[in-house]
Design a protein around this nucleic acid. Structure first.
Lengths: 205, 205
DNA sequence: CGGTCTCTTGACGGAGTTCAAAGCTAGTGG
DNA sequence: CCACTAGCTTTGAACTCCGTCAAGAGACCG
Protein backbone atom coordinates (compact mmCIF):
# COMPACT_ATOMS: atom_id res chain seq x y z
CA UNK A 1 0.00 0.00 0.00
CA UNK A 2 1.30 3.40 -0.99
CA UNK A 3 1.89 5.62 2.02
CA UNK A 4 -0.10 8.67 2.96
CA UNK A 5 2.48 11.45 2.66
CA UNK A 6 3.55 10.96 -0.94
CA UNK A 7 6.38 12.45 -2.95
CA UNK A 8 6.17 16.23 -3.22
CA UNK A 9 8.48 18.88 -4.50
CA UNK A 10 11.87 17.28 -4.78
CA UNK A 11 13.70 19.51 -7.18
CA UNK A 12 14.04 22.11 -9.87
CA UNK A 13 11.55 22.55 -12.72
CA UNK A 14 12.77 21.47 -16.14
CA UNK A 15 12.94 24.10 -18.91
CA UNK A 16 9.95 22.42 -20.58
CA UNK A 17 7.90 22.74 -17.40
CA UNK A 18 8.87 26.38 -17.01
CA UNK A 19 7.83 27.04 -20.60
CA UNK A 20 4.43 25.41 -19.95
CA UNK A 21 3.76 27.54 -16.89
CA UNK A 22 5.06 30.61 -18.72
CA UNK A 23 2.55 30.06 -21.50
CA UNK A 24 -0.33 29.35 -19.11
CA UNK A 25 0.27 32.67 -17.32
CA UNK A 26 0.56 34.68 -20.54
CA UNK A 27 -2.78 33.22 -21.64
CA UNK A 28 -4.39 34.96 -18.64
CA UNK A 29 -2.81 38.43 -18.73
CA UNK A 30 0.06 40.64 -19.89
CA UNK A 31 3.10 40.32 -17.67
CA UNK A 32 6.68 41.47 -18.14
CA UNK A 33 9.59 39.02 -18.23
CA UNK A 34 11.03 40.20 -14.91
CA UNK A 35 7.79 39.65 -12.99
CA UNK A 36 7.20 36.32 -14.70
CA UNK A 37 10.71 35.17 -13.77
CA UNK A 38 10.22 36.12 -10.13
CA UNK A 39 6.85 34.39 -10.19
CA UNK A 40 8.21 31.11 -11.51
CA UNK A 41 11.16 31.13 -9.10
CA UNK A 42 8.78 30.45 -6.24
CA UNK A 43 7.75 27.09 -7.69
CA UNK A 44 9.33 23.70 -7.02
CA UNK A 45 8.93 20.58 -9.12
CA UNK A 46 7.23 17.39 -7.92
CA UNK A 47 5.98 14.05 -9.17
CA UNK A 48 3.58 11.29 -8.15
CA UNK A 49 3.27 7.68 -9.27
CA UNK A 50 -0.12 6.40 -10.36
CA UNK A 51 -2.40 5.71 -7.35
CA UNK A 52 -0.31 7.84 -4.98
CA UNK A 53 -1.86 10.68 -2.98
CA UNK A 54 -0.81 14.30 -2.63
CA UNK A 55 -3.53 15.07 -0.06
CA UNK A 56 -5.79 13.11 2.24
CA UNK A 57 -8.62 14.17 4.59
CA UNK A 58 -7.31 15.58 7.86
CA UNK A 59 -4.19 17.05 6.28
CA UNK A 60 -3.90 20.78 5.66
CA UNK A 61 -3.46 21.55 1.96
CA UNK A 62 -0.16 23.44 1.87
CA UNK A 63 0.14 23.62 -1.91
CA UNK A 64 -1.28 24.76 -5.19
CA UNK A 65 -0.03 22.74 -8.18
CA UNK A 66 0.24 23.22 -11.93
CA UNK A 67 0.16 19.86 -13.73
CA UNK A 68 2.66 19.46 -16.58
CA UNK A 69 2.11 15.77 -17.45
CA UNK A 70 -0.28 13.09 -16.23
CA UNK A 71 -3.57 13.53 -14.40
CA UNK A 72 -4.70 14.32 -10.86
CA UNK A 73 -8.17 13.90 -9.35
CA UNK A 74 -9.67 16.03 -6.56
CA UNK A 75 -12.46 14.14 -4.82
CA UNK A 76 -14.44 13.54 -1.64
CA UNK A 77 -15.96 10.41 -0.12
CA UNK A 78 -19.54 10.68 1.11
CA UNK A 79 -21.08 9.00 4.17
CA UNK A 80 -21.65 5.76 2.21
CA UNK A 81 -18.08 5.64 0.89
CA UNK A 82 -18.91 6.82 -2.62
CA UNK A 83 -16.37 8.96 -4.50
CA UNK A 84 -17.39 12.35 -5.88
CA UNK A 85 -14.89 14.08 -8.15
CA UNK A 86 -14.77 17.89 -8.07
CA UNK A 87 -12.49 18.00 -11.10
CA UNK A 88 -9.60 16.34 -12.90
CA UNK A 89 -6.38 18.23 -13.61
CA UNK A 90 -4.38 17.23 -16.68
CA UNK A 91 -1.55 19.04 -18.48
CA UNK A 92 -1.92 22.82 -18.09
CA UNK A 93 -4.48 22.71 -15.26
CA UNK A 94 -4.16 24.07 -11.74
CA UNK A 95 -5.32 22.18 -8.66
CA UNK A 96 -5.72 22.88 -4.96
CA UNK A 97 -8.27 22.34 -2.22
CA UNK A 98 -9.09 26.02 -2.15
CA UNK A 99 -11.04 25.64 1.10
CA UNK A 100 -8.22 24.03 3.10
CA UNK A 101 -5.49 26.04 1.35
CA UNK A 102 -6.96 29.48 1.96
CA UNK A 103 -8.14 28.85 5.51
CA UNK A 104 -5.29 26.46 6.45
CA UNK A 105 -7.77 24.10 8.07
CA UNK A 106 -7.83 20.30 7.67
CA UNK A 107 -9.06 19.14 4.28
CA UNK A 108 -11.94 16.74 3.64
CA UNK A 109 -10.69 15.90 0.17
CA UNK A 110 -8.30 13.55 -1.61
CA UNK A 111 -5.81 14.43 -4.35
CA UNK A 112 -4.85 11.23 -6.16
CA UNK A 113 -2.67 10.63 -9.23
CA UNK A 114 -4.64 8.69 -11.86
CA UNK A 115 -1.46 8.40 -13.99
CA UNK A 116 2.21 9.01 -13.30
CA UNK A 117 2.13 12.78 -12.93
CA UNK A 118 4.64 15.67 -12.93
CA UNK A 119 3.76 19.12 -11.63
CA UNK A 120 5.04 22.45 -10.37
CA UNK A 121 4.12 23.33 -6.79
CA UNK A 122 3.89 26.53 -4.79
CA UNK A 123 3.48 26.67 -1.02
CA UNK A 124 1.07 28.91 0.84
CA UNK A 125 3.79 31.14 2.31
CA UNK A 126 5.48 31.62 -1.07
CA UNK A 127 2.18 32.51 -2.67
CA UNK A 128 1.45 35.08 0.04
CA UNK A 129 4.92 36.53 -0.52
CA UNK A 130 4.18 36.84 -4.24
CA UNK A 131 0.96 38.71 -3.47
CA UNK A 132 3.05 41.14 -1.42
CA UNK A 133 5.82 41.56 -3.98
CA UNK A 134 3.95 41.47 -7.27
CA UNK A 135 0.50 43.08 -7.56
CA UNK A 136 0.09 41.41 -10.94
CA UNK A 137 -0.04 38.04 -9.18
CA UNK A 138 -3.07 39.17 -7.22
CA UNK A 139 -4.70 39.91 -10.55
CA UNK A 140 -3.59 36.59 -12.06
CA UNK A 141 -5.17 34.51 -9.33
CA UNK A 142 -8.29 36.67 -9.22
CA UNK A 143 -8.79 35.97 -12.93
CA UNK A 144 -8.11 32.26 -12.48
CA UNK A 145 -10.49 31.97 -9.54
CA UNK A 146 -13.15 33.83 -11.52
CA UNK A 147 -12.82 31.38 -14.39
CA UNK A 148 -13.11 28.29 -12.22
CA UNK A 149 -16.06 29.93 -10.49
CA UNK A 150 -17.84 30.22 -13.83
CA UNK A 151 -17.10 26.57 -14.63
CA UNK A 152 -18.40 25.39 -11.23
CA UNK A 153 -21.55 27.47 -11.62
CA UNK A 154 -22.34 25.91 -14.99
CA UNK A 155 -21.72 22.47 -13.57
CA UNK A 156 -24.03 23.06 -10.63
CA UNK A 157 -26.82 24.14 -13.00
CA UNK A 158 -26.18 21.10 -15.20
CA UNK A 159 -26.31 18.77 -12.20
CA UNK A 160 -29.80 20.09 -11.41
CA UNK A 161 -31.31 20.43 -14.86
CA UNK A 162 -29.75 17.73 -17.06
CA UNK A 163 -30.17 13.95 -17.04
CA UNK A 164 -27.18 11.70 -16.39
CA UNK A 165 -27.05 10.81 -20.09
CA UNK A 166 -26.92 14.50 -21.09
CA UNK A 167 -24.20 15.20 -18.52
CA UNK A 168 -22.21 12.28 -19.90
CA UNK A 169 -22.38 13.81 -23.39
CA UNK A 170 -21.37 17.19 -21.91
CA UNK A 171 -18.38 15.57 -20.29
CA UNK A 172 -17.24 13.95 -23.54
CA UNK A 173 -17.38 17.24 -25.47
CA UNK A 174 -16.06 19.47 -22.66
CA UNK A 175 -13.07 17.20 -21.94
CA UNK A 176 -12.27 15.66 -25.33
CA UNK A 177 -10.00 12.65 -25.06
CA UNK A 178 -10.09 12.54 -21.27
CA UNK A 179 -12.66 9.72 -21.09
CA UNK A 180 -10.15 7.48 -22.87
CA UNK A 181 -7.57 8.12 -20.13
CA UNK A 182 -9.96 7.41 -17.24
CA UNK A 183 -11.81 4.34 -16.07
CA UNK A 184 -15.59 4.41 -16.22
CA UNK A 185 -15.65 4.41 -12.43
CA UNK A 186 -13.72 7.70 -12.44
CA UNK A 187 -16.06 9.22 -15.02
CA UNK A 188 -19.04 8.02 -12.96
CA UNK A 189 -17.62 9.67 -9.83
CA UNK A 190 -17.35 12.93 -11.79
CA UNK A 191 -20.91 12.71 -13.13
CA UNK A 192 -22.30 11.84 -9.70
CA UNK A 193 -23.78 8.49 -10.76
CA UNK A 194 -22.86 4.81 -10.38
CA UNK A 195 -20.48 3.12 -12.78
CA UNK A 196 -23.16 0.54 -13.57
CA UNK A 197 -25.40 3.29 -14.82
CA UNK A 198 -22.61 4.76 -16.98
CA UNK A 199 -22.36 1.35 -18.57
CA UNK A 200 -26.10 1.38 -19.28
CA UNK A 201 -25.92 4.90 -20.75
CA UNK A 202 -23.15 3.83 -23.10
CA UNK A 203 -25.19 0.83 -24.18
CA UNK A 204 -28.24 2.92 -25.15
CA UNK A 205 -26.52 5.33 -27.56
CA UNK B 1 -46.68 43.15 -16.47
CA UNK B 2 -43.48 44.65 -15.11
CA UNK B 3 -41.13 45.69 -17.87
CA UNK B 4 -37.83 44.07 -18.74
CA UNK B 5 -35.35 46.86 -18.08
CA UNK B 6 -36.19 47.60 -14.46
CA UNK B 7 -35.14 50.39 -12.18
CA UNK B 8 -31.37 50.62 -11.66
CA UNK B 9 -29.09 53.08 -9.96
CA UNK B 10 -31.07 56.26 -9.60
CA UNK B 11 -29.18 58.12 -6.93
CA UNK B 12 -26.80 58.53 -4.07
CA UNK B 13 -26.27 55.90 -1.37
CA UNK B 14 -27.71 56.76 2.03
CA UNK B 15 -25.30 57.02 5.01
CA UNK B 16 -26.75 53.75 6.33
CA UNK B 17 -26.00 51.98 3.07
CA UNK B 18 -22.46 53.34 3.01
CA UNK B 19 -21.95 52.11 6.57
CA UNK B 20 -23.16 48.63 5.60
CA UNK B 21 -20.77 48.39 2.64
CA UNK B 22 -18.01 49.86 4.78
CA UNK B 23 -18.46 47.11 7.35
CA UNK B 24 -18.69 44.35 4.74
CA UNK B 25 -15.35 45.40 3.25
CA UNK B 26 -13.59 45.66 6.60
CA UNK B 27 -14.77 42.14 7.38
CA UNK B 28 -12.68 40.91 4.42
CA UNK B 29 -9.40 42.84 4.89
CA UNK B 30 -7.60 45.81 6.38
CA UNK B 31 -8.09 48.97 4.33
CA UNK B 32 -7.33 52.60 5.12
CA UNK B 33 -10.09 55.22 5.21
CA UNK B 34 -8.86 57.00 2.09
CA UNK B 35 -8.92 53.89 -0.07
CA UNK B 36 -12.29 52.85 1.34
CA UNK B 37 -13.73 56.30 0.56
CA UNK B 38 -12.50 56.16 -3.02
CA UNK B 39 -13.87 52.64 -3.31
CA UNK B 40 -17.35 53.57 -2.15
CA UNK B 41 -17.48 56.65 -4.36
CA UNK B 42 -17.73 54.43 -7.42
CA UNK B 43 -21.05 52.97 -6.28
CA UNK B 44 -24.52 54.25 -7.09
CA UNK B 45 -27.72 53.38 -5.26
CA UNK B 46 -30.63 51.47 -6.79
CA UNK B 47 -33.89 49.79 -5.87
CA UNK B 48 -36.32 47.22 -7.24
CA UNK B 49 -39.94 46.46 -6.42
CA UNK B 50 -40.91 42.90 -5.63
CA UNK B 51 -41.19 40.77 -8.82
CA UNK B 52 -39.12 43.21 -10.89
CA UNK B 53 -36.02 42.12 -12.77
CA UNK B 54 -32.51 43.55 -12.80
CA UNK B 55 -31.30 41.09 -15.46
CA UNK B 56 -32.86 38.78 -18.04
CA UNK B 57 -31.36 36.28 -20.47
CA UNK B 58 -29.88 37.93 -23.54
CA UNK B 59 -28.85 41.07 -21.66
CA UNK B 60 -25.23 41.71 -20.76
CA UNK B 61 -24.73 41.95 -17.00
CA UNK B 62 -23.22 45.43 -16.58
CA UNK B 63 -23.29 45.46 -12.79
CA UNK B 64 -22.26 43.95 -9.52
CA UNK B 65 -24.57 44.77 -6.61
CA UNK B 66 -24.38 44.82 -2.83
CA UNK B 67 -27.81 44.30 -1.28
CA UNK B 68 -28.65 46.53 1.69
CA UNK B 69 -32.32 45.55 2.26
CA UNK B 70 -34.64 42.99 0.69
CA UNK B 71 -33.74 39.91 -1.31
CA UNK B 72 -32.59 39.11 -4.85
CA UNK B 73 -32.56 35.74 -6.59
CA UNK B 74 -30.10 34.65 -9.32
CA UNK B 75 -31.57 31.81 -11.35
CA UNK B 76 -31.76 30.00 -14.69
CA UNK B 77 -34.60 28.29 -16.51
CA UNK B 78 -33.88 24.84 -17.94
CA UNK B 79 -35.22 23.35 -21.18
CA UNK B 80 -38.47 22.29 -19.47
CA UNK B 81 -39.03 25.74 -17.98
CA UNK B 82 -38.01 24.80 -14.44
CA UNK B 83 -36.27 27.42 -12.28
CA UNK B 84 -32.88 26.67 -10.72
CA UNK B 85 -31.58 29.16 -8.18
CA UNK B 86 -27.82 29.66 -7.98
CA UNK B 87 -28.15 31.72 -4.82
CA UNK B 88 -30.22 34.29 -2.97
CA UNK B 89 -28.73 37.64 -1.93
CA UNK B 90 -30.13 39.30 1.18
CA UNK B 91 -28.75 42.17 3.28
CA UNK B 92 -24.94 42.21 3.13
CA UNK B 93 -24.59 39.84 0.14
CA UNK B 94 -23.05 40.55 -3.23
CA UNK B 95 -24.60 39.44 -6.50
CA UNK B 96 -23.63 39.38 -10.16
CA UNK B 97 -23.72 36.99 -13.10
CA UNK B 98 -19.98 36.53 -12.96
CA UNK B 99 -19.93 34.80 -16.35
CA UNK B 100 -21.69 37.57 -18.26
CA UNK B 101 -20.11 40.36 -16.20
CA UNK B 102 -16.49 39.31 -16.66
CA UNK B 103 -16.76 38.33 -20.33
CA UNK B 104 -19.39 40.97 -21.24
CA UNK B 105 -21.36 38.38 -23.18
CA UNK B 106 -25.16 37.91 -23.04
CA UNK B 107 -26.38 36.32 -19.83
CA UNK B 108 -28.51 33.18 -19.55
CA UNK B 109 -29.68 34.10 -16.07
CA UNK B 110 -32.39 36.10 -14.33
CA UNK B 111 -31.95 38.47 -11.38
CA UNK B 112 -35.34 38.97 -9.75
CA UNK B 113 -36.36 40.86 -6.60
CA UNK B 114 -38.25 38.55 -4.24
CA UNK B 115 -39.01 41.50 -1.94
CA UNK B 116 -38.75 45.25 -2.35
CA UNK B 117 -34.98 45.59 -2.45
CA UNK B 118 -32.40 48.36 -2.09
CA UNK B 119 -28.78 47.93 -3.18
CA UNK B 120 -25.54 49.63 -4.12
CA UNK B 121 -24.34 49.05 -7.67
CA UNK B 122 -21.03 49.30 -9.46
CA UNK B 123 -20.60 49.17 -13.23
CA UNK B 124 -17.99 47.12 -15.07
CA UNK B 125 -15.96 50.15 -16.19
CA UNK B 126 -15.87 51.63 -12.69
CA UNK B 127 -14.75 48.33 -11.24
CA UNK B 128 -11.94 48.07 -13.79
CA UNK B 129 -10.93 51.61 -12.89
CA UNK B 130 -10.78 50.64 -9.22
CA UNK B 131 -8.53 47.68 -10.07
CA UNK B 132 -6.21 50.17 -11.79
CA UNK B 133 -6.24 52.77 -9.04
CA UNK B 134 -6.36 50.64 -5.88
CA UNK B 135 -4.42 47.37 -5.71
CA UNK B 136 -6.26 46.56 -2.49
CA UNK B 137 -9.48 46.23 -4.50
CA UNK B 138 -7.90 43.47 -6.56
CA UNK B 139 -7.22 41.69 -3.30
CA UNK B 140 -10.70 42.35 -1.95
CA UNK B 141 -12.44 40.78 -4.92
CA UNK B 142 -9.97 37.90 -5.08
CA UNK B 143 -10.84 37.06 -1.47
CA UNK B 144 -14.56 37.40 -2.14
CA UNK B 145 -14.42 35.22 -5.25
CA UNK B 146 -12.42 32.61 -3.32
CA UNK B 147 -15.06 32.50 -0.61
CA UNK B 148 -17.96 32.05 -2.99
CA UNK B 149 -15.91 29.41 -4.81
CA UNK B 150 -15.64 27.44 -1.57
CA UNK B 151 -19.38 27.75 -0.98
CA UNK B 152 -20.20 26.58 -4.52
CA UNK B 153 -17.82 23.64 -4.19
CA UNK B 154 -19.49 22.49 -0.98
CA UNK B 155 -22.89 22.84 -2.57
CA UNK B 156 -21.87 20.80 -5.61
CA UNK B 157 -20.67 18.00 -3.36
CA UNK B 158 -23.87 18.17 -1.32
CA UNK B 159 -25.98 17.99 -4.49
CA UNK B 160 -24.25 14.72 -5.36
CA UNK B 161 -24.00 13.04 -2.00
CA UNK B 162 -26.95 14.18 0.10
CA UNK B 163 -30.66 13.41 -0.17
CA UNK B 164 -33.15 16.19 -0.83
CA UNK B 165 -34.30 16.01 2.79
CA UNK B 166 -30.71 16.44 4.07
CA UNK B 167 -30.13 19.37 1.70
CA UNK B 168 -33.34 20.96 2.96
CA UNK B 169 -32.05 20.74 6.55
CA UNK B 170 -28.70 22.16 5.39
CA UNK B 171 -30.52 25.07 3.81
CA UNK B 172 -32.46 25.82 6.99
CA UNK B 173 -29.33 25.90 9.14
CA UNK B 174 -27.08 27.64 6.59
CA UNK B 175 -29.61 30.39 5.87
CA UNK B 176 -31.43 30.82 9.18
CA UNK B 177 -34.65 32.75 8.84
CA UNK B 178 -34.50 32.91 5.06
CA UNK B 179 -37.01 30.08 4.52
CA UNK B 180 -39.62 32.20 6.30
CA UNK B 181 -39.07 35.02 3.77
CA UNK B 182 -39.32 32.78 0.70
CA UNK B 183 -42.09 30.68 -0.80
CA UNK B 184 -41.61 26.92 -0.90
CA UNK B 185 -41.36 27.13 -4.67
CA UNK B 186 -38.31 29.39 -4.30
CA UNK B 187 -36.72 27.05 -1.76
CA UNK B 188 -37.46 24.10 -4.08
CA UNK B 189 -35.76 25.89 -6.99
CA UNK B 190 -32.69 26.37 -4.80
CA UNK B 191 -32.62 22.73 -3.69
CA UNK B 192 -33.12 21.47 -7.25
CA UNK B 193 -36.36 19.59 -6.52
CA UNK B 194 -40.08 20.16 -7.10
CA UNK B 195 -42.14 22.21 -4.69
CA UNK B 196 -44.50 19.23 -4.24
CA UNK B 197 -41.61 17.22 -2.92
CA UNK B 198 -40.59 20.00 -0.51
CA UNK B 199 -44.10 19.81 0.85
CA UNK B 200 -43.73 16.05 1.34
CA UNK B 201 -40.35 16.49 3.05
CA UNK B 202 -41.86 18.99 5.48
CA UNK B 203 -44.69 16.59 6.24
CA UNK B 204 -42.34 13.74 7.19
CA UNK B 205 -40.34 15.55 9.85
C1' DC C 1 -1.43 -18.84 -15.74
C1' DG C 2 -3.92 -16.91 -11.34
C1' DG C 3 -5.78 -12.98 -9.16
C1' DT C 4 -7.45 -8.49 -9.01
C1' DC C 5 -9.65 -4.83 -11.11
C1' DT C 6 -12.91 -3.28 -14.64
C1' DC C 7 -16.98 -3.56 -17.39
C1' DT C 8 -21.55 -5.55 -18.50
C1' DT C 9 -26.16 -7.11 -17.68
C1' DG C 10 -30.47 -8.04 -15.23
C1' DA C 11 -34.02 -8.01 -11.46
C1' DC C 12 -35.69 -5.28 -8.07
C1' DG C 13 -36.34 -1.19 -5.11
C1' DG C 14 -36.60 3.64 -3.79
C1' DA C 15 -36.14 8.62 -4.25
C1' DG C 16 -38.06 12.07 -6.58
C1' DT C 17 -41.32 13.64 -10.68
C1' DT C 18 -45.59 14.43 -13.05
C1' DC C 19 -50.21 15.41 -13.23
C1' DA C 20 -54.45 16.54 -11.23
C1' DA C 21 -57.54 18.15 -7.72
C1' DA C 22 -58.72 20.58 -3.73
C1' DG C 23 -57.90 23.72 0.24
C1' DC C 24 -55.62 27.79 1.80
C1' DT C 25 -53.62 32.60 1.87
C1' DA C 26 -52.99 37.06 0.57
C1' DG C 27 -53.37 40.88 -2.30
C1' DT C 28 -56.59 43.85 -4.95
C1' DG C 29 -60.39 46.42 -6.33
C1' DG C 30 -64.92 47.86 -5.55
C1' DC D 1 -64.24 46.08 4.75
C1' DC D 2 -65.68 42.45 2.11
C1' DA D 3 -65.41 39.54 -2.06
C1' DC D 4 -62.81 37.72 -5.57
C1' DT D 5 -59.14 35.96 -7.68
C1' DA D 6 -54.46 34.48 -8.36
C1' DG D 7 -50.97 32.23 -6.48
C1' DC D 8 -49.27 29.06 -2.84
C1' DT D 9 -49.51 24.63 -0.46
C1' DT D 10 -51.05 19.94 0.32
C1' DT D 11 -52.12 15.33 -1.03
C1' DG D 12 -52.39 11.13 -3.76
C1' DA D 13 -51.61 7.83 -7.70
C1' DA D 14 -48.90 6.50 -11.36
C1' DC D 15 -44.55 6.71 -13.34
C1' DT D 16 -39.21 7.33 -14.34
C1' DC D 17 -34.68 7.59 -13.53
C1' DC D 18 -31.19 5.86 -11.28
C1' DG D 19 -29.25 2.96 -7.27
C1' DT D 20 -28.43 -1.60 -5.15
C1' DC D 21 -27.14 -6.15 -5.33
C1' DA D 22 -25.46 -10.04 -7.58
C1' DA D 23 -23.29 -12.74 -11.04
C1' DG D 24 -20.48 -13.33 -14.92
C1' DA D 25 -17.21 -11.89 -18.62
C1' DG D 26 -13.24 -9.61 -20.06
C1' DA D 27 -8.63 -7.25 -19.34
C1' DC D 28 -4.38 -6.38 -17.32
C1' DC D 29 -0.19 -7.32 -14.39
C1' DG D 30 2.95 -9.99 -11.78
Amino acid sequence: MSDTQATPDGGEPTPAQVAQLHEAVRRQLRIDDDALGRFIQRFGAGALRKKDYLLRPGQVCYFEVFVTTGCLSLYALDARGHKHVLYFATEGWWLTDIDSFTTQTPSRLYVEALEDTAFLLIRKADKEQLYQDLPVVERLFRLMTQRTHVVLQRRLLASFSESAAARYEDFLTTYPGLAQRLTQQQVAAYLGITHEFVSKIRKRR
